[in-house]
Design a protein around this nucleic acid. Structure first.
Length: 1121
RNA sequence: AGAUCCGUAGCUCAGCCUGGUUAGAGCACUACACUGAUAAUGUAGGGGUCAGCAGUUCAAAUCUGCUCGGGUCUACCA
């Protein structure tokens, strides 16, 4: 055991961290922190896998600090906390990165580069920055198992994913359907939302838009409309039309419905068709009348309507809600062979098209408030169409041209996909046709923002594509229910963002048309009648052999010998399986959403159920996970969905979602803006500890953080600097006195007031910090620790106790001081260890190296401090607060009178309002006197006429009782005389007449404070008032001089580099006044400055010039020996 | 467009859940002081329509509604 505490020269956090890191590595500290808890209750943590194909940024440091501190804390709480690292390795960003690097596009795959080579490139690229990530992980002190991470592209991982998929398949939760997705006819491929969100894809374009007229069918349901239109007889003039607007007239042949908003007001309007000038009745949203009709035309003269005058007369015939229109039928707009009822029903048996539907998505911002609905070409359309079973028509092929059976339009491209100079816009032709047929109410160019394919620059369309779905909607209620058991931090994310998301859930579209990812393990016959879902490698290999036997030829010959070695494309696609009826089956070509990869990590990280069954059982569900709030609908969702579907369980019990890291101006960090903060540089410069402390204490994790390097500097200076100094102070004197905590622990009750106070505060801190951490509020915990170190420990305890450490002999009081300060330091570093693991460990080790109080090589192996409730003394903490306040008040009075603290003063007057207050103050009297340098404290109790008092209502206590009478009482109290107040105090109660009614008041319901002591200079804060006697007697002046002189000599000692224990001889030349002071206090001075002699003469030759209260002196200070 | 979080001093934040009468810290700035641990600290000073409007209440930074501004997620539409 060392016998001296290490004394540092400077505080150099990065250097200390490097040493600590080396030690951790040497001693396998992380591994050991898990091992020492062998057999203990596990605390389960899941690491959300990052993707290592990009560089880590500062925002990764915050979420990882959060994860790390919780895990460290729980370890210190006695739990066994394993943390398996992981890597997310599939997905589009990887593919795009590779394509960029190789200078190819998706079309080149299979041509310029084989899928095999392409995927090989992806596999290499995906862990490109793994080293950088590992480095950051290590340097920031994030303890996570980097040796055995799970990697999503491995066969084992994928095998578990397949197992999961098969479970879902067997539960009937996996199905194939169409979904409406962005599709680029020019490129012949679907686009992901990621691709659609590339900059520049949304562009303002001018399209031909048309308000088409859909003719209502007259029947029982629609009778009320025809009645309103005054058409008792079926005449040609009596036609009613629904108006619907579209910016894509090419979708009109595929129209199968019209959607209205149930709560939107619609009107039936009598008017003329502006193109054909035929009288018509039209229906549209009331709110949009102004778009089509001028106010002057309302109730205009229908009989003398002139086609040349552009003013349409119009008249509202009826008004109704959208909900009243539900189910009404209309005539098909552009009937043809390809979109006949027979054709529709051939695709969707039993479909009932051309009806009015209700949909919440309808707005009255544009168009007519009636939405032309073509299920194939819009996600909303598809959804509402499905609900009403109106069928689906896709009259445009994958190249973007009309199919056969549409007469004049067949074969024409809906947009200029071929860059044909002779291209004629089919949308215009459709509009012209409508105009001619009295089926267009308004046709115009319309400018709007429309997405374009980022590769071909051609407009994207929404198009039905085959996709596999997970029927999450089937377990929606259960997911909602279980979500309520999850502890969300902050809570609002769980109930709000996540809760709402669950409420509005749609089935999970799993399909991705890509190359590098987990293949969907489903094989199908060509007619789609038979299919097989594969759930393991073994099963696949068995099926491979079976197919080879049944189908013969060279089917699967490559895979017969060793089985399949890589579950990725292209290999799985070469495998042909055989159906039960003996037909060949090919794999469904899709890959699955990478979110499935990460959502299945609780199972796949252990290769469950093929291995580690017990391990899995012990580690599911997680006690805690944490990621950025942007993962709410990503990882948090997929984990939850799979947990519920596979095991009817939550996947995590607590989830903390942290906010974003913005730059100091509140802008999002991006490479483009050049405001990204390099985490390596930051850690290099300021240390991981200060960075972590700053990130955690500056703002709650879920608030966005405005990252400012100045904030880290402040943390470093203020918190770590103060703590470091406190330790240095301790080490300095403990080494001098040889304190090694070998003496018995002095019972706290036997220690001085101030020791009991700091220990009581320390217990309070432990209690509060523990509570905060238990509630996943590390910000609170950090701030509490900070306050304690700064306010209590350093600026009060150490400041007031300084003398106890360097004065006097090594006996009880001094030992008590050492024991107390030691306990504070050691406890503080244990409390802060989870947040800032390096410096705390260093200090802990240095302390423990001498005292050996703990068995353990690291603060991270021992237990978190436990509160000793019996040491908490609230009264003591309160009176110390009084002492601090009183001192502060006296100092401010000194300041006002311009009397420095070194000048002793005679007396402080303190009016006390109760005996308790007096007792409390008496106990801290010595502390106050020493701190403010006064000789006596006098308590004023009999105060009438001497102290001026003030009374005001205790609003909290009185509010409920008085209610509206509060104001009157408040005014009455304001007018109380000194006599009234003292009467009240004497009686303990007062009867106040308010509005002819007596209001009884007790002392507890008012606050009485002393305000003034006539003739004295006073200061007050709350109930505390102090007055200071500022007379300086000659006696006091002498002492002031002596103290000033001591101060100067101490400075010389320090400047001369003397040791704190060196003895000196002093010679001083002083004029008469000062000389008298010095000689009078000769003994005191010698004791203070450790001088054996203090010689006072009239002159000395050289020596150092000093000034004592405006007197010039010369001194010679000599070190002895 | 919807959901959600945020808006308090020049800056970073507390206080809001549970309403109570002078709205607090720290940083920065100015002056003075203290220091035998201190890169600290103390005292004093300037600095606030608590984003805005309306409501509830004896009383609103705090509760409710609306509006504005910022962020994020989702959707992107006739």
């Amino acid at each position: 055991m060392a016998n001296r505490y290490k004394e540092f020269k400077h505080l150099n956090l990065p250097a200390i961290e490097k040493e600590v890191l080396d030690r951790w590595q040497r001693e396998n500290a992380f591994q050991k922190s898990v091992e020492v808890r062998e057999g203990a209750q596990p605390f389960v943590f899941y690491e959300g896998p990052p993707s290592a194909n990009g560089m880590p940024g500062i925002h990764h440091v915050i979420s990882r600090t959060l994860k790390d501190l919780v895990c460290r804390y729980k370890t210190m709480q006695g739990f066994k906390v394993e943390r398996k690292g992981g890597w997310d390795t599939h997905g589009l960003p990887v593919e795009l990165g590779v394509e960029k690097e190789l200078g190819i596009t998706k079309e080149d795959i299979g041509k310029k580069i084989s899928i095999e080579e392409y995927n090989q490139k992806c596999r290499e690229a995906v862990l490109r920055y793994k080293d950088k990530w590992d480095e950051l992980t290590t340097k920031m002190g994030y303890w996570v198992d980097l040796e055995h991470p799970y990697i999503t592209f491995t066969n084992e991982y994928i095998e578990t994913l397949w197992w999961c998929l098969k479970q879902l398949y067997e539960k009937g939760l996996l199905y194939k359907s169409v979904s409406i997705q962005p599709y680029s006819p020019a490129a012949g491929t679907g686009l992901s939302s990621h691709e659609l969100n590339q900059p520049g894809t949304y562009r303002n374009v001018k399209d031909t838009s048309a308000v088409a007229m859909f003719k209502a069918v007259r029947n029982e349901k629609s009778a009320f409309l025809f009645q309103a239109a005054n058409c008792q007889l079926p005449t040609a003039n009596c036609e009613i039309f629904f108006l619907a607007w579209t910016t894509t007239p090419w979708t009109l042949p595929s129209n199968l419905g019209l959607t209205v908003g149930p709560n939107i007001d619609y009107v039936l309007v009598k008017t003329f068709n502006p193109y054909t000038h035929l009288p018509v009745n039209v229906i549209l949203a009331k709110a949009l009348l102004g778009k089509y009709f001028k106010p002057e035309g309302e109730n205009g003269d229908f009989d003398s309507y002139d086609e040349k005058v552009k003013l349409l007369p119009w008249k509202i015939l009826a008004e109704f809600k959208g909900s009243e229109l539900e189910g009404l039928e209309y005539e098909q707009l552009l009937p043809d062979e390809a979109n006949s009822l027979a054709a529709v029903q051939a695709i969707t048996p039993g479909a009932k098209p051309w009806r009015i539907l209700l949909g919440d998505f309808v707005t009255t911002e544009d168009g007519t408030g009636i939405v032309h609905t073509a299920p194939a070409f819009g996600a909303d359309d598809f959804r509402v169409g499905k609900k009403y079973n109106i069928g689906i028509l896709t009259l445009v092929d994958r190249e973007g041209k009309f199919v056969d059976g549409l007469g004049e339009f067949s074969g024409r491209y809906i947009k200029d996909y071929k860059s044909d100079p002779a291209y004629v816009d089919v949308n215009v032709d459709i509009s012209v046709k409508l105009k001619k047929e009295n089926r267009a109410f308004k046709v115009e160019k319309y400018e709007h923002s429309y997405p374009h394919c980022w590769r071909t620059d051609k407009p994207v369309v929404y198009y039905p594509l085959d996709a596999w779905f997970i029927r999450t909607t089937a377990v929606k209620d259960r997911m909602v229910e279980l979500n309520k058991t999850i502890n969300w931090k902050p809570e609002s994310t769980g109930t709000g963002r996540f809760g709402n998301w669950l409420e509005n859930m749609v089935d999970w579209n799993l399909s991705r048309s890509r190359y590098w990812g987990t293949p969907l393990p489903i094989w199908r016959t060509e007619d789609g009648r038979e299919e097989k879902c594969i759930g393991s490698i073994e099963e696949l290999n068995a099926e491979i052999r079976k197919a080879s036997e049944v189908l013969g030829g060279d089917v699967n010959t490559h895979y017969l010998h060793n089985g399949i070695l890589d579950l990725h494309k292209p290999y799985v696609d070469e495998v042909i399986l055989v159906s039960d009826s003996g037909k060949p089956m090919r794999r469904e070509p899709d890959l699955i959403d990478v979110w499935f990869d990460s959502g299945a990590m609780p199972y796949a990280q252990w290769h469950f159920p093929f291995e580690n069954q017990e391990k899995f059982t012990q580690n599911f569900p997680a006690d805690f996970i944490a990621e950025g709030v942007d993962q709410t609908r990503g990882w948090f969702y997929t984990l939850h969905a799979l947990g519920v579907m596979l095991f009817d369980s939550v996947a995590y019990k607590t989830v903390v979602s942290n906010g974003l890291v913005l730059d100091k101006n509140g802008n999002k960090m991006s490479k483009r803006l050049g405001n990204v903060v390099d985490p390596f540089k930051t850690i290099e410069q300021f240390g991981a500890d200060a960075t972590r402390w700053y990130l955690i204490t500056n703002a709650s994790p879920w608030d966005n953080l405005k990252f400012d390097i100045e904030g880290i500097k402040e943390v470093q200076r203020k918190f770590f600097g103060t703590l470091y100094n406190t330790y240095q102070f301790f080490a300095l004197y403990a080494n001098v006195d040889g304190f090694t905590f070998k003496e018995d622990y002095i019972p706290v009750a036997e220690r001085p007031e101030i020791d009991r106070w700091i220990l009581s505060s320390l217990q309070t801190l432990i209690k509060q910090a523990t509570a905060a951490l238990d509630e996943y509020e590390p910000t609170q915990a950090g701030r509490l620790i900070e306050d304690f170190v700064d306010e209590h420990l350093s600026n009060w305890y150490v400041r007031l106790c300084r003398r106890r450490f360097w004065k006097g002999d090594y006996e009880q009081d001094k030992i008590a001081a050492y024991q107390t300060l030691y306990e504070c330091l050691e406890t503080v570093v244990r409390l802060m260890a989870p947040i800032s693991p390096f410096f705390s460990d260093e200090i802990f080790i240095q302390l423990n190296a001498v005292t050996g109080k703990h068995h353990g090589q690291s603060v991270h192996h021992i237990l978190f401090p436990e509160v000793r409730e019996e040491l908490i003394d609230t009264e003591l903490e309160e009176r110390m607060q009084l002492a601090q306040d009183a001192s502060s008040l006296v100092l401010s009075l000194r300041k006002k009178a311009n009397i420095k603290v070194r000048q002793p003063l005679q007396k402080v007057l303190l009016p006390v309002l109760s005996p308790t207050m007096e007792q409390q103050l008496q106990k801290v009297e010595d502390l106050i006197k020493a701190e403010v340098n006064v000789k006596e404290m006098e308590y004023l109790t009999d105060t009438e006429g001497f102290i001026k008092k003030k009374i005001k209502p205790n609003f909290v206590a009185l509010g409920k009782k008085l209610g509206a009478r509060m104001k009157a009482v408040s005014t009455a109290l304001q007018n109380f005389s000194q006599h009234d107040i003292s009467l009240f105090e004497k009686e303990g109660r007062y009867s106040l007449p308010i509005n002819d009614e007596a209001v009884e008041l007790t002392l507890a319901e008012v606050e009485i404070t002393s305000e003034d002591i006539p003739g004295w200079s006073v200061a007050s804060k709350g109930p505390l008032t102090v007055a200071l006697d500022i007379n300086i007697t000659p006696e006091l002046e002498d002492e002031g001089n002596a103290r000033e002189f001591v101060n100067r000599i101490q400075k010389i000692r320090k400047d001369s580099g003397f040791d704190v224990t060196d003895r000196i001889d002093v010679k001083v030349a002083a004029n008469n006044g000062i000389a008298a002071s010095l000689s009078k206090f000769n003994n005191y001075i010698c004791a203070e400055i450790l001088a054996d002699t203090l010689e006072i003469t009239s002159t000395i030759a050289d020596g150092i010039e000093i000034e004592v209260n405006e007197n010039q002196l010369k001194v010679i200070v000599l070190k002895k020996g």
